[in-house]
Design a protein around this nucleic acid. Structure first.
Lengths: 347, 347
DNA sequence: GTGAAAGCGCTAACAA
DNA sequence: TTGTTAGCGCTTTCAC
């Protein structure tokens, strides 16, 4: 009710609505005197322009939409757990949006849907966001990129691997991080190392696996097929994979899981077999989920700066919408977090 | 670019734009024939009404805004961790919104800000959401409720304690849950029980403490001041509180923390003192955070159905916006999750 | 430097 | 049952 409009402000300031618009949008060609009057009136009235009206009339919607894959999200929802990656992504984007007067919208996207293209098109024409943040695996969907490009929509891809030249990108080197972690295990003295692969739909899964294999190869170590199992980034899948790997005739002395949730599953599987970590088995994860520092033993893992990535993405998008040249693609740094779940294998 | 508008659909279907509007909004008084023609044209064109235009012209914005306290959120963002409560809340709300063609917006609110009232008013007049989901501690801010009421905005409060008659409410009985958990500890044989209080701004903190104290009193047990410490729901605060409690001349045999993050801090503090859990100390938490099932020992805690609460809230709001009588206040059930961190005290 | 007028794409009365 | 006509509150030409 009683909503304050631009007309109210204009009347109170004794100027035209156009002047109010100019002042509030920081346009040039305004005298200091006018700016002050308008600002005063707007403050007194507690005026805030209507998002809808702005979006409808102008070229900007002040909306950033984050596209998130529906499958894993629903999986989390079903299991009653939150999604740490999503949460961190969101916090980063939120902080950046807040500063710039932008609003963040989370949109679920089913990349496996046969109607994916129209879903994206429909979403864009309905929301007209000033920019889109594509999270994996949406960031690697050619269908999505094509649809977005056909509309001239601005987007930044998080952790994308394929077609690196398309759109804005903020990524970290998953392959190298996995390589480094594998080397860490090798340096500890492990030669028999198992690996739990991530969800096949994610580019990061392939990259991490490639990094693991490259490190093994570079050190003259064989990757044994029975020590590699394919999970889907969930705890139960990690548990199942570990049971398979540890059920092999010969056991590896270390297992590197493609994310922390699966690493926790590995820890659980080890506990069921009566294996002590890290004495009987070293376990490494990837992500630095909150549980990684709370678990016992604390988990050795790779810290992925998700929040910073999302901040950078939002910043690029907002700058672009404001007509500024958007900053180019950005690589962010990962960090190996060495905790207590990895150690030298027993003599 | 090439955005499809209602005019395009009307032209293709050979009807007026009003008819298109009627069909797409499921209004009565439309022949089957017309409905089919319009639907066909809309599908062929991949038409989706503009959110801005709808919001501007009509009474509904198809937006649900979730109000989240800035302080704890920024704290999480700084520490590079996600927020499990927020994430679960969001997933639930998202699922419900998605079904109804609604969009979810996350808005940060600083309940300690001197400009809180105008912040809320500004947000509402800018966004004009069809409904707001108030998360704690925003849900207990009289200033926010007053501001929202002055605008006639529809809102549902999550886990609110004060002024229970205002607005929609979805809550669980924090007091009773804490009571039950305390009784669980007492039944195990504990008589010396410590308590870590939550963030003072949260109503749930008071309720949980009250439940603890009531249970102790009902069983003729004393609450010793040196065994109660005030934290703020963060891991470090739990650690600090536990160090204080365990540093007392006499130690309790169990500590009940007001949330899991603090409980993990208690576990950590115990480990530093060389105490084994649950042999030397039983630890109970509250929330059932993801880490609770991954930690060793797995944490005994209270499961709070955050996601279901948010779903119910969104459902109420959407029903209300559609003109249906909104379902009344709803209490959701908690569950004690008894895991391995609690046991009988040593002889 | 400032203002008047024309829409943006819808929904909501009101006619027909 | 359907169509016509006004706006909703802004931004954007284009005059002044």
């Amino acid at each position: 009710m009683g909503a304050v409009t631009i007309y109210d402000v204009a009347e109170r300031a004794g100027v035209s609505i156009k002047s109010v618009s100019r002042v509030l949008n920081g346009r040039p060609n305004v005298t200091e005197e006018l700016r002050r009057k308008v600002q005063e009136a707007a403050d007194a009235l507690g005026y805030r322009p209507s998002l809808s009206a702005r979006g409808l009339a102008g070229a900007r919607s002040y909306l950033i939409a984050a596209l998130v894959d529906a499958e894993l999200t629903i999986e989390h929802w079903r299991s009653g757990r939150g999604n740490d990656y999503l949460s961190r992504m969101e916090l980063g984007a939120l902080m950046e949006c807040r500063q710039a007067g932008y609003h963040l919208l989370i949109e679920l996207v089913d990349v496996a849907s046969p109607t994916l293209e129209r879903d994206i098109l429909a979403m864009v024409s309905s929301l007209r966001p000033d920019g889109l943040i594509l999270t994996p695996p949406v960031s690697d969907s050619t269908v999505v990129l094509d649809a977005l490009d056909s509309r001239g929509a601005a987007y930044v891809r998080l952790g994308a691997e394929r077609e690196p030249s398309r759109g804005g990108r903020v990524w970290m080197d998953d392959r190298r991080a996995a390589y480094d972690m594998t080397v860490h295990l090798i340096r500890l003295g492990h030669r028999d190392i198992g690996f739990v692969v991530g969800h096949p739909r994610y580019a990061a899964s392939r990259a991490r696996r490639a990094g693991f294999e490259a490190a093994m190869g570079d050190h003259g170590l064989a990757v044994r097929a029975e020590w590699v199992a394919e999970g889907d980034f969930t705890f139960p899948s990690g548990l199942a994979c570990a049971e398979r790997i540890l059920g092999a005739a010969r056991r590896p002395t270390a297992i590197f899981a493609s994310n922390d949730d699966m690493a926790f599953g590995v820890v659980q599987a080890a506990a069921r077999l009566g294996l002590s970590i890290p004495r009987d088995l070293s376990v490494a994860g990837f992500d630095d989920a909150p549980g990684a520092q709370f678990s016992t033993p604390q988990l050795t893992t790779v810290r992925q700066p998700v929040s910073e990535m999302a901040e950078a993405a939002a910043r690029m998008l907002i700058a672009g919408a404001a007509g500024q040249a958007a900053p180019g693609p950005a690589e962010v740094a990962y960090a190996l977090v060495l905790r207590d779940s990895t150690a030298a294998p027993r003599g």
